[in-house]
C-alpha cells in the first residue's frame, strides 16, 4: 500500500469536512477497498473511516420503510426481521468475517457489478440518502463502479420501502462467491420490480420486460416467451454471455416461485 493517513471522524459533518480534501477517500468496512489498496490500485493520501460514526449505524422501521444507516454492517441487516428477503441477501454476502465489517453504504458506493445489495436497492426502488440529498435508486446506478455520488458525498442511510413480498436468488461465482447472477424480485406498491446483478456489463439493471409480464400475471410461466439479450452480458471464465442470460431467467423464475 502507498502511505496514507486514516482519519476516524465521529460525525457525518466531520467526515464530510475531511472528505473536502481532494486526495481523501471514504473508507467503509474496507472489504473491497483494502484489497485494492494492497495491490496499489488506488493512491489516496487520506482515508476517512466511516465506521465510527454512530449516526450512520443502525436499522429502524417506520411506516413500512426500513431505514439502514450507511455504516451498518451486513451482519446487522441479516439479523433484522422486517424485510426477510433483504436479511437473506445480506446474510449471504461474502463470509461471516466480511459481513461483520462490510457495510451497505460501502457496497453501494462501490457498485461492483456483481455485488448483491444494488439489486435489492433497485429491485425495491429504495432511496439512497446522502449528506446532501436523496437519490432514487433508478437514478443512482450509472454503470459498473459508477454511481450518482459526488466525490465528497457520503451515503448516510438507505431507505427501503418494504415490499409486499420479495425474494433474492443468487447464483454464486464459484471463486469470489460474488453473484455470477443475482435477481431480486419484489412486489411493491407500484408493481413488480425485477433487478439483476452480476450479469451485465452495465452493472445492475431492471429487467423491464419481465416486470411488465409479471405485472400482468405473477407466475414464473409468464417469463416463458421472454428472452434476455445476451449481448450486454458479462462473459468470462466463469460463464459465457449466453449462460448468464440463461441464469437471469432461471434465477428470476426461482425468485417468483419463492414468493409464491
Amino acid at each position: 500500500m502507498y502511505a496514507f493517513d486514516v482519519e476516524t471522524p465521529s460525525s457525518v459533518a466531520e467526515a464530510v469536512a475531511a472528505l473536502k480534501d481532494e486526495e481523501a477517500t471514504a473508507l467503509g468496512g474496507g472489504q473491497t477497498l483494502i484489497p485494492t489498496l494492497k495491490q496499489r490500485l488506488a493512491a489516496p493520501e487520506k482515508l476517512v473511516s466511516l465506521s465510527g460514526i454512530a449516526e450512520m449505524k443502525g436499522i429502524s422501521t417506520d411506516g413500512g420503510v426500513l431505514t439502514i444507516g450507511g455504516a451498518t454492517p451486513h451482519v446487522e441487516v441479516a439479523a433484522q426481521g422486517d424485510f426477510p428477503a433483504l436479511a437473506a441477501l445480506a446474510g449471504n454476502i461474502g463470509d461471516p468475517a466480511v459481513r461483520n465489517r462490510g457495510t451497505i453504504g460501502g457496497s453501494l458506493a462501490n457498485n461492483d457489478p456483481s455485488a448483491c445489495y444494488p439489486s435489492a436497492v433497485l429491485g425495491t426502488g429504495a432511496t439512497i440518502v446522502t449528506n446532501t440529498r436523496e437519490i432514487a435508486a433508478d437514478d443512482y446506478f450509472q454503470g459498473m463502479f459508477t454511481t450518482a455520488l459526488e466525490d465528497d458525498e457520503i451515503i448516510t442511510a438507505v431507505r427501503f420501502p418494504i415490499p409486499k413480498a420479495a425474494s433474492y436468488q443468487k447464483f454464486d461465482q464459484p471463486a469470489s462467491r460474488f453473484a455470477l447472477v443475482g435477481v431480486f424480485v419484489a412486489k411493491t406498491a407500484d408493481g413488480v420490480r425485477v433487478a439483476v446483478t452480476g450479469a451485465s456489463e452495465d452493472g445492475v439493471f431492471r429487467w423491464t420486460e419481465a416486470e411488465e409480464a409479471l405485472n400482468k400475471e405473477f407466475r414464473s410461466d409468464a417469463l416463458m416467451d421472454l428472452d434476455i439479450n445476451a449481448m450486454n452480458m458479462i462473459g468470462d471464465l466463469h460463464g459465457t454471455k449466453e449462460y448468464r442470460a440463461h441464469l437471469v431467467k432461471v434465477m428470476t423464475r426461482r425468485a417468483i416461485n419463492a414468493i409464491g
Partner: peptide, 20 residues
C-alpha cells in the same frame, strides 16, 4: 483452473477467480 488469455495474462490470478 489456471487460465491464460492469448496475451499470456493469467486471468484466474487470485482467489477472486481461482476457485479454491
Amino acid at each position: 483452473q489456471a487460465v491464460y488469455d492469448d496475451d499470456g495474462q493469467l486471468i484466474s490470478g487470485s482467489y477472486m477467480d481461482y476457485a479454491m
